[in-house]
Design a protein around this nucleic acid. Structure first.
Length: 879
RNA sequence: GGGCUCAUGGUCUAGUUGGUUAGGACUUCGCCUUGACAUGGCGAAGAUCUCCAGUUCAAAUCUGGAUGGGCCCA
């Protein structure tokens, strides 16, 4: 093996995997299937560190299953439907969607999506992801949209979809209804206008404070707080609106904050969420003061045809002229805005398509309970969301680039004609309806111009990837999916809607497991924002440190946690790769394929390592199954670097000469070297595949380590752990001692004497000690002839605590207060009596404390090192 | 305002069921070119485990409260 050439190796293996078609789902295979409902990457915007981390996490789950014998279904997929691409196309070409012919605009959207799709494929390759290009899908493909439309038809026929007038969140700029999830709330400063209203049957005025005076025309009701004494006399009277002169009731309502404005509130349809609540509560009519483009309607009287902003300015001007506006002041207000273009949203009563959601809440919660959530607490978020729902799901959108709603409507009687399932995919804005004219009244039919909310597409991804309505036999075999990985930010959208649709269409859960990932924050611990200048480009890091280093970093990020990214962690990943390379380079000359040996042929050091290795295999397997990638990498790194390399290899270096074959060594190195490499291949596949090819492939026999067989645990012997630990501690203690003395580690020693009761553990390891520490002689003695002086008595809390309970701390204090040398003999010979403050006497036994001793010779300390109760005396050459 | 979640040396973090000296990484300093690795090895320094209260012989760990991040919602 030569130097580790990261760039060449990563490029080579990315190419190999693709050319060898290693990660293709095999429909014919009889192996168990592991299916990943991979989140289609959205085809606009650059690759974010969040993507790069999240997708490698998903890749870990998939690669682990490839290596444990599954037939993995892990599609490469891209999402393109919806507004972000529309907005990007508008920006790119300097056009507006609604000023552009529909089909032309759709062509530009597709073109944009195509360009980005190629880029996404390249980026996934760079990350070393094993997504299957042979089952690639994009959410605008006719096959995909066909399925979305079929689900609509099925749900419609079951009476779960209805068209209704309903107040919806409305973005006047985009001209579309928004789901609640698409509305963002932020505080903004606005002007609170104090306006004189009349009160019927009396001379006095009442003043209402409002930020939306242009909505006075839709005023339906007025309210005061029942606790508000100064306004109590108004309850039951009628309020007369200025300009319009309309009379509305004044009622008492708990929701009114007497401290806000004047304490008198006008309730309009529809200014904000609170208005909506009152309108539902009091069953008031809903009037639209503006149309879909934010232009005032004839309800607004003289202000008809103005924009909302202009109308507000005009009515304020008029009120001022009439002397009805005594005061204006600034006020902080939480205002909803469009998630994409940030325009302030309004509420409009418009015809929309709804999918019944409220009726299914119980069932969705039941399914949520049947899923395994990783981490568990993410389930609570879904439950809270479901329990807080109060509206059905608006599934129609007044946009272009999404799946068309497959219906035609009669221009005259409004009859609805559904597309036929076998005709889907259809675009009603282009395609002919299944019947030439309205069957009810004979009038012309118009294709529906609305499209679906993109979650209508996204929420059938598990149905799509399991060949629902494409290959029913295969679908039944594949359903439900094994895993849904996704971000925590879309629990109440993607996860919720997918469960909902699975319930309606399949009557059960869509997957077995759901893995919910957290957020990657900037190094300063804040979210990354271009405006904060703290955005980190993962492509730069990939270029600088490589894919394996990035994947190493990614594995250290705990699933579901929000963590700040640190560049040094990626650098550390690169160093780990270098270390791994050098370890295998070093042991390569001793690797000679699998060597059968009897356990009895192995030395303590070998058994010590193999026992730990066997336990590691079990733990790592379980950690992978539970998506604890952070634990996997921590344990593997600690074992490979600090057990295998720092201790085992150091212990066996002297055995690694070419002259004689050491079967025990060859067996141990091969087993542990290959086994740990395989477990690492899930996380860092490039370097491990290269090492595998160079060292192990000829014996293990698979084309790529990434599809090799998972390692098996082996023999474990607890006593060997203890024995090996003592051996390891002795060796490292003496090596440290050499280092501290400024001696070379290769410095020869005349003699090493090890004294103490535990030397029995070292029987048989004398050669290892001598060979590793360059000592000419090694002596093991149960008892010392040197005089050891006790210098410290250390209580063992785990024994003293439970035994003496409330007296424990007093005993510990008493032990610390006396000279170690005074009480040590008593402890050694049997027991020590301690008198407590309450007059009682307790016995301290030998095993309740550690006695720390220092060897003395003629009253002087000798060169020695303590390892627990073992004493090591070191004799230097010519000393 | 509500739900969930996090808070550990200067920085980033580990810490299963409470129990010897709170583990690691980065940084800083010192030593070491030891048969693969100086992108390495050894050592030193550095933490009243955010704060307050409680349970307990014993709390980073359990309970309650406060404060401050993050995500989502209102």
């Amino acid at each position: 093996m030569n130097q580790y050439d990261r760039e060449a190796i990563e490029a080579k293996w990315q190419k190999n995997w693709e050319q060898w078609e290693l990660y293709h789902f095999d429909k014919q295979s009889t192996a168990p299937v592991y299916s990943v409902d991979n989140p289609p990457r959205y085809a606009s915007g650059p690759l974010h560190v969040g993507h790069a981390t999240h997708y490698t996490h998903i890749d870990f789950a998939a690669r682990f299953r490839w290596q444990t014998g599954y037939n993995v279904l892990f599609p490469l997929c891209v999402d393109v439907n919806g507004m972000p691409i529309e907005v990007n196309v508008e920006k790119k070409h300097g056009i507006h969607m609604r000023d552009t012919p529909r089909q032309e605009f759709l062509r530009l959207c597709k073109e944009f999506a195509d360009e980005n799709t190629d880029q996404i494929r390249t980026q996934f390759n760079l990350l070393g992801c094993c997504m299957d290009p042979s089952i690639f899908y994009r959410t605008d493909a006719e096959q995909y949209r066909r399925l979305t439309q079929i689900t609509f038809l099925k749900l419609y026929n079951e009476g779960l979809i209805y068209k209704g007038l309903a107040p919806v969140n409305w973005c006047p700029r985009c001209g579309t209804a928004l789901a609640d999830a698409e509305v963002e709330y932020a505080d903004r400063e606005s002007i609170l206008n104090y306006i004189h209203f009349g009160v019927s049957g009396q001379d006095e005025d009442a003043i209402v404070a409002t930020t939306r005076p242009e909505l006075i025309c839709t005023c339906q009701l007025a309210a005061v707080s029942p606790k508000d004494e100064k306004l109590a006399h108004l309850i039951g009277k009628k309020l007369i609106t200025p300009i319009y002169g309309k009379e509305v009731d004044i009622i008492a309502d708990d929701k009114v904050d007497p401290e806000f404005g004047t304490g008198l509130v006008m309730i309009c349809s529809i200014g904000d969420k609170d208005d909506l609540d009152w309108i539902y509560k009091h069953n008031l009519p809903v009037e639209n003061a503006m149309d879909g483009q934010g232009i005032m309607t004839n309800i607004a009287g003289d202000y008809k045809g103005m924009t909302i902003k202009d109308a507000r300015a005009a009515i304020i001007e008029d009120l001022k002229k009439q002397g009805l506006l005594p005061k204006q002041e600034k006020a902080e207000q939480s205002v909803g805005s469009c998630w994409r273009c940030k325009t302030f949203i309004e509420f409009l009563q418009v015809p929309q398509w709804f999918l019944k959601t409220l009726d299914a809440r119980e069932e969705v919660l039941k399914i949520a309970d049947e899923l395994n959530w990783y981490p568990e607490f993410m389930k609570i978020r879904l439950q809270n969301w479901v329990n807080s729902l109060n509206r059905d799901w608006v599934i129609s959108r007044q946009r272009y680039f999404a799946t068309p709603i497959p219906i035609w409507e009669c221009n005259s009687c409004g009859d609805i004609i559904l597309a036929k399932e076998e005709d889907c995919y259809v675009d009603p804005t282009v395609d002919e309806p299944p019947v030439p004219e309205c069957p009810e009244c004979g009038e012309q039919l118009a294709g529906c111009e609305d499209v679906f909310d993109t979650w209508m597409d996204s929420s059938i991804s598990p149905l799509y990837i399991t060949y629902w309505q494409q290959d029913n036999e295969l679908h039944e075999k594949l359903w439900p999916c094994s895993l849904r990985p996704q971000g925590q930010d879309i629990i109440r959208t993607w996860a919720f809607y997918t469960i909902l649709r699975s319930h309606y269409l399949k009557g059960g859960k869509p997957w077995n497991d759901i893995m919910v990932d957290g957020f990657i924050l900037a190094p300063d611990g804040r979210p990354m924002h271009a405006s904060d200048g703290n955005v980190i480009d993962p492509l730069d890091l990939l270029e600088k440190y490589g894919s394996d280093a990035w994947r190493y970093y990614s594995s250290t990020v705990t699933i579901g946690e929000d963590v700040a990214i640190q560049e040094k962690d990626i650098l550390h990943g690169q160093r780990f790769c270098t270390k791994l390379w050098n370890i295998h380079k070093f042991i390569s000359k001793t690797i000679a394929g699998p060597v059968e040996v009897d356990w009895s042929q192995l030395r303590t050091s070998d058994r010590w390592l193999l026992t730990q290795y066997s336990r590691l295999v079990k733990e790592i397997t379980r950690d992978y199954e539970e998506f604890h990638f952070d634990r996997v990498i921590r344990k593997l790194e600690a074992f490979i670097w600090h057990v295998f390399a720092d201790h085992y290899i150091e212990m066996v270096k002297y055995r690694m000469n070419d002259d004689e074959q050491d079967d025990a060594l060859a067996h141990t190195l091969y087993t542990v070297g290959l086994g740990t490499l395989k477990m690492l291949a899930v996380i860092i596949p490039h370097i491990t595949d290269e090492i595998y090819e160079q060292l192990y492939k000829e014996f293990d026999g698979v084309q790529s380590i990434t599809v090799s067989e998972w390692p098996e645990p082996g023999i474990e012997e607890d006593i060997e752990l203890t024995r090996g630990d003592v051996l390891k501690d002795i060796i490292s203690a003496v090596r440290n001692w050499k280092s501290e003395q400024g001696l070379a580690l290769s410095a020869e020693l005349e003699i090493i004497e090890i004294i103490g009761p535990r030397i029995e553990y070292l029987m048989g390891s004398e050669l290892d000690i001598a060979g590793t520490l360059k000592a000419k002689n090694v002596l093991l003695m149960a008892e010392a002839e040197v005089i050891e002086t006790p210098v410290e008595i250390k209580p063992i809390h785990a024994i003293i605590g439970p035994k003496f309970k409330q007296y424990a701390s007093e005993i510990v204090k008493k032990l610390a207060a006396v000279e170690a040398a005074e009480i040590a003999p008593a402890l050694e010979s049997g027991e020590l009596d301690i008198e407590l403050s309450n007059g009682e006497t307790v016995k301290i036994e030998r095993d309740m404390v550690n006695i720390i001793k220092v060897p003395m010779l003629d009253g002087k300390e000798v060169k020695s090192v303590n390892v627990g109760d073992l004493l090591i005396l070191i004799g230097q050459e010519a000393d």
